[in-house]
Amino acid sequence: MSASTTSRHHILSVLVENKAGVLARVASLFSRRGYNIFSLAVAPTDDERFSRITIVVDVESAPLEQIVQQLDKLVNVVSISELAPERAIERELLLATVEAGPEQRVEVAALAGIFHGTVIDVASDRVTVAVTGTPDALDGVEDLLSPFGIVELQRTGRVALPKLGSRRRLQPVADRAG
């Protein structure tokens, strides 16, 4: 995620019912109202009735408040919290398979090491690395890996939690259960 998007992105943490079709409802809402998504990640929660969708939205495509209110109208959306980027810890996982013969292998491993990543698979002419980091850091990893020749690359989209010591935790912006 480049620096220019940082200023216009906001992170919404959306608690939804864990039911068939809920992700489709959320995605369909964004598509039909013309809201842009930078990234989206879905994960189970400790309560099996609910899932959490972390959405990074482009607030230039629509005002955040409008996006939140429209999301909140979805019957399966239970509550929505907003995380201001400057108060959030954000992480994303990157998996990349790059071309690396025996000579480059160590180089790639060292590079991954700088970002606290690891080599998780090896073949005679390729290696696969896993790196966790902020979206910006992973942009850097991608740039540094590309000279080797990227065969395949996948990123998860970010998940986020509030910084400790920041006075406010997840800021509820719409909570119907309350």
């Binding site: 079709g21 489709a24 369909s28 109208k73």
Partner: peptide, 14 residues
């Protein structure tokens, strides 16, 4: 039909 009508109903159920 639940997919088709997702955006034009308040909610739908299968």
């Amino acid at each position: 039909i639940t997919s088709i009508t997702m955006g034009i109903t308040k909610h739908n159920w299968l």
